[in-house]
Write a protein that binds this DNA or RNA. Sequence first.
DNA 1: AAGTGGTCTAGACCACAAT
DNA 2: TTGTGGTCTAGACCACTTA
Lengths: 252, 252
Amino acid sequence: MAGDVVQLDDLLATLDRTGPMPLYFQVSSAIERAIRSGEIAPGARLENEIAIAQRLGLSRPTIRRAMEELVDKGLLVRRRGIGTQVVQGQVTRQVELTSLYEDLQNSHHAPGTRVLVHDTRPADDATAAALSVPAGSDVVYLRRQRSTDGVPVAVLVNYLPPDFADITTDQLEAKGLYQILRARGVTIRVANQRIGARRAHGDEGELLDIDKGGPVLTMERVAYDASGRAVEFGHHCYRPDMYSFETTLVAK
Amino acid sequence: MAGDVVQLDDLLATLDRTGPMPLYFQVSSAIERAIRSGEIAPGARLENEIAIAQRLGLSRPTIRRAMEELVDKGLLVRRRGIGTQVVQGQVTRQVELTSLYEDLQNSHHAPGTRVLVHDTRPADDATAAALSVPAGSDVVYLRRQRSTDGVPVAVLVNYLPPDFADITTDQLEAKGLYQILRARGVTIRVANQRIGARRAHGDEGELLDIDKGGPVLTMERVAYDASGRAVEFGHHCYRPDMYSFETTLVAK
DNA sequence: AAGTGGTCTAGACCACAAT
DNA sequence: TTGTGGTCTAGACCACTTA
């Protein structure tokens, strides 16, 4: 029963061994594109690793690495003794490590930012613990209203370590926080976040243009840079009819 | 500056090459335990891969595999030319691919289930699409109230393919859905989920013991088994003061 | 220049599932 | 018995960072 096994000849032509893009990434990207475009149907079986490796002139570990990438993304399912299959059902994108600003940009909307508060203040205990700074020491405090196409989407509260005190309000109105950090050489690598819900408090109802006491989606996040240092602590609330979190989970 | 580099001698004694547990997993588990217990401090640098490999008598790829495991869990951060460091800040557990029942069990509470509805009915369009069954064909419908220590936590609505029609209400009262599926040889491998918020509808306020129209946290999930087939579609709502979703995100 | 992780190769043996 | 993915080895070369 090798009839409905998908072969991957077209990939051969596009492999580039001179550029900086890893071979395993070229392979996984090509397969991912084929799956998302429907060229490879949901449920289809792929050739085995060794056959693909020979066909593409690559080693088996390189192909394995490409496959693992796609398993982690929830696009493929593998079973020992059986083979590799494409997952049924429409594929949704991952929750990625981006700021809301970039999320909105990527969905082809025009994000807007209004900076409500931007100052430096002593950290409360929770913030000091999250950012690993001494309790009561100064941190940067931000409160912003985020909108898309003129409709308010979220109220964002952030705390940053004091060495980011020179970020300007103008920068914050023009770009996403993560973009500003990246331009300063700070890239976010890891984040812990908690998603919940509650009633809108204080002026949130007004800022989000929803009923007072209406439901909001909340997210708390502590983000770490490439050296493992905490660089951002935030607690945000979102208009639930404008935003939700999508995830793909893969059992290990 | 090799002064504050953590060495990993203790691991050597515990390596077992006879059992079924992979070596890379033994290594990553031991390091994970050391990090979570505080034996290795946040921010600490680890030895380089080759040194660890030699020290433990393993090959470099095996050590790499162990490290990758920990990077994916958000415990380690690696930089080319620099080294490997433990992430700062307290480590939170992953959102895993478990049912709410198991979540509550693992947090040492006594989960309870009340089956509100359990029947077979024609699938509406959204359900049929999610489960990849013909529109209007019969599916299993479940509505359950989940509580912990007597306090209501969630109202769970699930749709299952028709071959699960023989699951009994008694089974559902006694165990989590995923445990029942696993006992039938069905293991969940991949799931797509969306988390949001809204007002409580209909009898949800009563069932969750919250104010009518109060906020609830919602989750929609489509889960797939090892062959990539959709085996569960659910939309649930949670009492926001009793439940939230924690995630660790890692940039790729 | 030295040290680090990132990629890649070419094999080997094993556990598991189907036939 | 055959075919599959899972694990493991022992190297090699490269890109990047720091000194």
